[in-house]
Structures are given as C-alpha cells and as structure tokens.
Amino acid sequence: MSKHFEDARYYLGRAAEHAKAGVKEELEPIEGRVKDLVGIDDETEPEPSRLDRLQADLKKLEERAEGEAREAVASARERVAEYRGHDAAESE
C-alpha cells in the first residue's frame, strides 16, 4: 500500500478517535440531566435481568449436578472396591 494511503488511514483513525471523545465530552452533561430526570443513580446496581437470573439458576443447577455426580462416582467406586475385596476373599 502506498505510504500516502497508510498515512491517510492513520489520520482518519485519529480523527475518528478525537470525534468520539468530543461527542462523549459534549453529551456528558446531557446524560447527567437525563439520569437525574429518570431517577437513575450511578451508585445503584440495576436489577438483574431475566437472562442474568436464568444464568444464575443454571449455574446453581450445574454445581448441584456436579456434586451429585461426584457422590455417585464415589459410591460406585466404593461398591466396586467392596465387590473386588469380597471376590478376592472367596477365591482364597
């Protein structure tokens, strides 16, 4: 790519960054007024959305299922070890 195009691309990127920063700076006071009118406080956390609640429920279920699976595997291992011990005692 020509050096001129590389330079133009660089400066366009910088111009976009500056434009974004300028728009953000200009809209900050308006954003504050809108939040005051609507009653949104920056310090309060929003209520969890339905998706967030479902994801939390699924995480709890996943943890519970994982715990139950671990218990089942441990129980099966105990039964196998007991069976093998009982089987070895009979063959003697």
Rank of each mutant, 00 (worst) to 15 (best):
K24H: 07
S49I: 12
A16E: 11
R9Q: 10
K20C: 02
R84C: 07
E6Y: 07
I40G: 00
Q55I: 15
D57M: 11
Y83I: 04
E62F: 05
R50Q: 08
A89T: 02
S49W: 02
R14C: 06
L58G: 14
K35C: 01
A8L: 11
A8K: 12
K3Y: 10
M1D: 12
L51E: 00
M1H: 04
L51G: 06
S91P: 00
R14M: 08
E17Y: 00
H86C: 11
A76N: 10
S91Q: 13
R33W: 09
S2M: 00
R79G: 02
V38C: 06
E68P: 10
H4F: 14
K3I: 15
L12P: 06
E92L: 10
A16C: 03
Y11W: 14
D52E: 15
R9V: 07
S2L: 02
E17M: 06
K59I: 07
A88G: 00
V38M: 04
R33N: 08
R33E: 11
F5P: 00
A21M: 05
S2R: 04
G67V: 08
F5N: 15
V34D: 03
D41R: 14
S2K: 13
R79Y: 03
E17L: 00
K60N: 06
G85V: 05
R84T: 02
P46K: 13
A65C: 11
E71V: 12
K24R: 12
R9W: 01
H4K: 15
E68K: 06
Y10S: 12
R79L: 03
L37W: 13
A88H: 07
L61N: 09
L61P: 07
Y83K: 10
G85S: 01
A56W: 10
E31K: 14
D42R: 05
T44D: 14
V34I: 15
K59C: 08
E92Q: 10
K3N: 13
S2E: 14
E63V: 04
Y10I: 13
A88Q: 05
E82A: 15
E71I: 08
A69D: 03
T44K: 13
V23G: 12
V80D: 09
T44S: 09
E92F: 03
A81K: 00
R14V: 09
A74H: 01
A89W: 09
K60V: 13
G22K: 09
E68L: 13
V80G: 12
A56D: 11
D87T: 04
